[in-house]
Design a protein around this nucleic acid. Sequence first.
DNA 1: CTGTTAGCGCGTTCAA
DNA 2: TTGAACGCGCTAACAG
Lengths: 342, 342
Amino acid sequence: MSDRQPQKKPQVTAEDVARHAGVSRVSVSRTFTPGASVSASTRGKILESAEILGYRVNRLASSLNRSESGIVALIAAEIETPYRSAMIAALTEKLQAAGKVTMLINTSGYEERVKDALLQAISFRTEAAIILSGTPDLSLADTCFSNGMRLALINREDDFPGALLIGPDNEAAGRTALNALLRAGCKTIALANSANATSSILEREHGFLDAAKEAGVPVIREISGVTSYKAGLEIGTSLMDREDRPDGVFCTTDLIACGVIDAARQRFGLLTPDDLSVIGFDNIPQAEWEGYALTTFAQSTDLIAEKCLEWCTTQQTTTQTVKLPAKFVWRNSVKKCNVPPK
Amino acid sequence: MSDRQPQKKPQVTAEDVARHAGVSRVSVSRTFTPGASVSASTRGKILESAEILGYRVNRLASSLNRSESGIVALIAAEIETPYRSAMIAALTEKLQAAGKVTMLINTSGYEERVKDALLQAISFRTEAAIILSGTPDLSLADTCFSNGMRLALINREDDFPGALLIGPDNEAAGRTALNALLRAGCKTIALANSANATSSILEREHGFLDAAKEAGVPVIREISGVTSYKAGLEIGTSLMDREDRPDGVFCTTDLIACGVIDAARQRFGLLTPDDLSVIGFDNIPQAEWEGYALTTFAQSTDLIAEKCLEWCTTQQTTTQTVKLPAKFVWRNSVKKCNVPPK
DNA sequence: CTGTTAGCGCGTTCAA
DNA sequence: TTGAACGCGCTAACAG
């Protein structure tokens, strides 16, 4: 029972270290502040004491007087999804390299969570919030700004004053996809999309459909479910079941594309690229798997992450919109043709 | 130029709200503290002012006097991997439901990062650290403990005093796998593993090999690369190329299993379950994909997350080891047999 | 129920 | 180079 201690101080503080080293508390602070002036001897004593006591600067406390918390919020839903998790991996990587700390907020479930997530970010005086899913209210965004926070939205087509809007050029990619299918000699063209597509995903559809209209080719438009492999399975089944079975289909997402390919192969015995040409979007790891060898569009997660980081660490306050070109990745799910698409 | 403001106070503070509402700053604090005593009228005024000014309690500051920061650190490598990202999704979900905030630290790359991650967690006075990849030094763990932090390790077989060790019963799963392959009538058995397997993954191998030795059946042991789809591809190719080509293989990971299945199908025209029976481990989303229909072992990410949360929110200090049964998920990558495995 | 006072751990003045 | 004093934004303890 001898160690019935205060119990309210499980922390090792700078004062403890100062006492142990026989110096003032301020010197301890200086020792851990880059570019402060401390003599080598006291610095040595302090570092030693700190090591023994297991002292670490309390960044929660230091955030109080310094104006930066060092924290950046990542707000995303369905983070277990291949593309989303790759994006998060890239972002955390870059943020950490820049000395930032990432706070991950999972907004899967009801939509209201995006709001809660942002409120939480404000509570922790996050320097910035990077939003991968959903779009916040503008009024809430203003609250963020008035608290000195920066905002970046990935893969949103909406207008959003004061924020960075970044994503691939979806519209152009859609056009390229149609082009590729036509050059591959496809006669019956289809588009596969989910019923709850985001604005960003819808742009891919628009680009594809517009290009088709211009080229004067009809498109079978098959929409179903939420953006996922399962939706692709359903869409693929419907498509392969038709009288006018398509021989070329653009899927707005790799996950959907994998579902379509599997439906064709496992349920109808139809193989890519001989019986069917399929193009996806995202270039998720599974697109490279030999069972799919999916021709698709790559968004550079690294590049997006890089741009987000830049945005978060500058003070620029005007709105910025960045459209990155989506790189066409040629694999083996589209029938070979002599002329590759431009 | 009129708005050249102090520039050092982008924050809305409780004092601002108090002034705006014409009350004391303490009342503001009380209003946002559950179970404090404020009159309905002042409370109303304060809430209104807070709304107008966009005030949010600064949890960094409040963490100073309260002993809890509300932050939990998640330390993981390769977070873009299916199983890892699913685990992270489950953890964030549970943590948020319990009012905790998660700080994600990506330790991909050099191993030293696990140490840095923990040091960072200490700096932010994280209430707990949940480690999904790597094992920290014991001395560092002590520093964590002396700072009042709790530790949980997922999928580690090591001994670790003071921490929660949680994961599936790998050894038992390995034994079950052999059993299932034998009952399916497989004649030539193989084991596929990566060259950099963790202790947890090695346990699966041990269980499988031990059971085989007891049953008196030989096992072809094929090891290659890092734990990934690509490794599975290589292993599968080697295996299918052999004179004594196996007709039943246990892969220590679903990712490896998908690679093996693809190698057999795409490179040798061999199909599961007719030509080859394959069992995996993890039950990643792709295991359910129709192109694989992988029979595998499911770790309940939800259950693990639940247990971690309990551990992080209790004060119990003794070591705890939890072995969860891995659920055998029967799909269609193993030849049908009349007697399902026990 | 309210306001005053004190302190959380730290960084930044300002003198010495 | 060092230490004393002050304040960051907030909550807990104590009066009124």
